[in-house]
Amino acid sequence: MIPNSTLRVRTTILDDACRGGVALRLASLAGAALLALVAPCRSAAAADGSPSAAAGGPTTSLRDYTVPSIRLVRDDGKTVSLEDEMNDGRPIVLNFIFTTCGSICPLMSSVFSQFERRLGPDASKVHLMSISIDPEQDTPARLREYARKFHAGREWQHYTGTLAASVAAQRAFDVYRGAKMSHNAVTLLRAAPGKPWMRIEGFVKPEDLVRDYKQQLLAGR
């Protein structure tokens, strides 16, 4: 296990490498070996609705994140430990959403929904998790309603909790941007506890998510 301080450095490098920023300088500081973890960034363009971004798809990278010791409230109203939810042995597909979000979240959630459907019977082996970044609004009842709208199966849970817990979860996965309207589309995949996370920035299509998921499972064995 790599100590936390190293992990922080690594995350910084990967972020910058994908942004085409100061990766080289940092890489020389921390050693090029770490960069080997980075899958080639497919594109630096934001996958938005603008033509300029249309050419670029989402970008992917591999990361190590430490799952924080926090308690969240699952959509069935039960208070649960995030570590327990993530470490039950199943592969995880994770995103961050809020139920009154107009553009990004409905698309991410419908991709999750399609992902479940495309996996077919294999869907029962995965754990899909959606954590609210607007937890005071997104009560368990509102999350259940949202989940129904996207035909969430038994393997897909939504989570809320205190604002502090949600922020801690967002920070742990480097998606916290200060306000819900500053959020970006990020999907995270992990084959098993202890394995690295695959981070997909931007809008991933359902068929690509299935492909990435299967690749992670193969790599994880």
């Binding site: 938005d48 609705g49 603008s50 553009s103 990004i104 970006n184 589309a185």
Partner: peptide, 24 residues
């Protein structure tokens, strides 16, 4: 309603910004 233009382009029709995403 999920397909309605207002969800992204807003009541004003002036678009919005979400993270790095621009809604024109």
């Amino acid at each position: 309603a999920d397909a309605a233009c207002v969800n992204c382009h807003q009541h004003s029709g002036l678009g919005s910004r979400e993270g790095r995403l621009s809604i024109p």
